[in-house]
Design a protein around this nucleic acid. Structure first.
Length: 596
RNA sequence: CGGGGAUUAGCGCAGUUGGUAGCGCGCUUGUUUCGGGAGCAAGAGGUCACGCGUUCGAGUCGCGUAUCCCCGACCA
């Protein structure tokens, strides 16, 4: 490809709206352009790079017996009603009406369409396990798209769905896909990434993992252990915390005046924030309050809370708080109207400790509150059902690890993939069955597996760049080699470069040839901005000696002069070495080849 | 949906007390240059986001709307 003909120019100045490095370089390098918030188009460089990511993804999915399919982006209300998600999903799903005024959706994920396939095609245990995948556009009406290509409203995702006859088989396969994912990310040049346990959301199955690129600009917070292999998204990370034990004493009221927050109270009473129990108040859609009591120094993880009560939650409105008999600023469990609220005690409110807690009276708190003695013991059976205990607290850096008790740490990450145990959530609701060996109808047991294809390129750039531009792995770079041709009109410079270009092209090497009559500085700057890993420089100066210059984009070795006669084999050899850096195992013979 | 910022040439930006719009980059032509974003010369390129208002006159003042970015809420 000749650079002068490439659609998409490089830009010297940083676009005003681009904050993230990856966003800046993708715009400046001419990989992408923005149409609207969260809606981007790929220029040739971006498209080539994404196409390579997709190709690697296909290889890895085929290796685990995945079968590529293509499901529609447009969905009907009827299909999405079957799973209940047409009404369960809120504004995140794009909705539209067709010309007959029939309600339609733009799919944000494809569980429903894939079950549509499965229930007509996978009807016998003999066909299981089976996995279908696609690389397809997804639409999500994000409340706030951000970070260039990181959070989009329209994006490409590889989504895969597996169908099994037993839970054991799903788990076996789940870990196989886990390995395929690790291979995929290594091959696409991701370096610093981990898989962490994650939240399944309200409609998921039993367990799931997220693959996270560890970069400071990431939007998720991960909790990892310094000593063992414990890694989890903060949304589900747990910690035993360090629980205090305090001697029992009688419950008594204490005047706290205008002090309402934990900070104010601990200052007033000269106590630590973990001596307090604070109330965090939410409500459900049907105006029931959900009040969480948690140790004063900790925060509630709303995902955990949602999982515990299996309902959507919102910040509580004042009238809901009052109806439940609570008083904000001094809220406590005693005196609440349990018919108007759910009560959750985080496990940090242990039965062995006493806490200072709100009294639901203006300016009054209670000292020495003991959960069992002062609250649970006084409830009747019906009231007890409205009270739950569970883990809703956010683990933080410095808290003890749930596995080995050593110190936890916090890291930021970008989610680049996930794998989910779905179980029979969709096969049951959508009546998807196969006949087992005994001829009995059984629901398929499902897993689902996603990779954010469009997000991968910016994620790699986030961790692989310098001040001049991205440093792309050869596996996903738009071209293998970048030619800078200096003073092309002098002597046979341009002609020589074209001859090498043709020889390499015939050998299958992808070359981006800078044929513009630009100053060396401009050519180098643009080459840096495009980020192709290998560079060859043709100049009259070196060609007089029958040499060309070779260098790596990442400057891992000093530039070297290569004999003109040697340059084609040298580049071929270097490219193959370069690819081998991203090989994870010996190339395995694919199942298709065995069949042939 | 709350808070903050922005919108003037393809990109980055100026634009004074209100008087009919400029600079740099990029683009076109010519010319001299040529190893880390060259110099000179001549050009092309604008519904100043949109609407309403104030005014003899609005890029500039007022009100409203839209769009974009950041923080938060949210993220199946």
């Amino acid at each position: 490809m000749f650079l002068s003909k490439l659609v998409g120019r490089t830009v010297k100045e940083t676009p005003r709206d681009a904050e993230l490095v990856s966003h800046r370089f993708l715009l400046r390098g001419g990989f992408v352009r923005q149409y609207a918030a969260g809606i981007y188009g790929l220029l040739p460089l971006g498209q080539r790079s994404i196409a390579k990511i997709e190709a690697i993804c296909r290889e890895e999915m085929n290796k685990v017996e995945g079968q590529e399919v293509k499901m529609p982006c447009l969905g009907t209300k009827e299909l999405w009603d079957e799973s209940g998600r047409y009404s369960a999903i809120g504004k995140d799903m794009f909705r539209l009406n067709d010309r007959h005024d029939k309600p339609m959706v733009l799919c944000m994920t494809h569980e429903e369409p894939v079950v549509f396939f499965a229930r007509s095609e996978l009807t016998s245990y003999r066909q299981l396990p089976a996995m279908m995948y696609q690389i397809q556009t997804k639409f999500r009406d994000e409340p706030r798209p951000r970070g260039g290509l990181i959070r989009l409203r329209e994006f490409t995702m590889k989504d895969a769905y597996s169908f099994h006859a037993s839970e054991e088989d799903l788990q076996r396969y789940y870990w196989k896909v886990h390995e395929a994912y690790m291979n995929f990310f290594k091959r696409t040049g991701c370096k610093n990434f981990v898989s962490v346990m994650s939240d399944n959301g309200m409609f998921g199955g039993k367990f799931s993992h997220e693959f996270m690129m560890l970069v400071p600009s990431g939007e998720d917070t991960l909790i990892t252990c310094k000593h063992c292999d414990y890694k989890a998204n903060q949304e589900i990370a747990s910690s035993p915390f360090s629980l205090k034990k305090s001697p029992e004493a009688a419950l008594q009221e204490v005047k706290t005046g205008g002090a309402k927050t934990i900070a104010e109270l601990s200052k007033l009473m000269n106590l630590q924030s973990d001596d307090f129990c604070k109330a965090v108040m939410y409500q459900t859609k049907d105006q029931e309050m959900v009040v969480v009591f948690i140790r004063g120094d900790l925060d509630v993880v709303e995902q955990k809370l949602k999982g515990l009560i299996q309902k959507e939650i919102f910040p509580a409105k004042e009238e809901v708080i009052q109806a439940a008999g609570a008083l904000s600023g001094s809220a406590g469990p005693i005196g609440l109207n349990l018919s108007k609220c759910h009560v959750i005690f985080d496990k940090t409110i242990s039965k062995e400790s006493q806490f200072i807690i709100g009294a639901n009276k203006e300016g009054i708190h209670l000292m020495n509150f003991n959960l069992d003695r002062d609250f649970l013991a006084n409830l009747n059976e019906w009231q007890r059902q409205r009270v739950k205990t569970g883990d809703v607290a956010a683990a933080r850096a410095g808290d003890p690890c749930p596995k080995c008790n050593h110190e936890l740490q916090e890291t930021r990450g970008i989610e680049i993939g996930n794998i989910f145990h779905l179980g029979t959530r969709y096969s049951q609701s959508m009546n998807c069955t196969y006949l087992d060996q005994a001829g009995a109808a059984q629901n398929h047991i499902m897993g689902c597996y996603g990779i954010g294809i469009t997000r991968l390129l910016p994620s790699v750039i986030e961790e692989s760049h310098d001040e001049r531009g991205p440093i792309l792995p050869i596996t996903i770079a738009p071209f293998h080699v970048h030619f800078c041709v200096l003073n092309k009109k002098e002597g046979k410079t341009e002609q020589t470069a074209i001859e090498v270009y043709q020889a390499l092209s015939q050998a299958g090497v992808e070359v981006l040839f800078d044929d513009r009559d630009e100053k060396p500085g401009s050519q180098f700057a643009d080459a840096d901005l495009i980020g192709i890993p290998l560079r060859v420089i043709f100049s009259p100066r070196n060609l007089n000696e029958n040499k060309v210059e070779f260098k790596f984009r990442d400057n891992r070795a000093p530039a070297q002069l290569i004999d003109l006669n040697e340059v084609v084999p040298f580049i071929q050899r270097t490219i193959s070495n370069e690819f081998s850096r991203y090989l994870v195992s010996k190339p395995t013979v694919s199942s298709e080849k065995i069949e042939a």
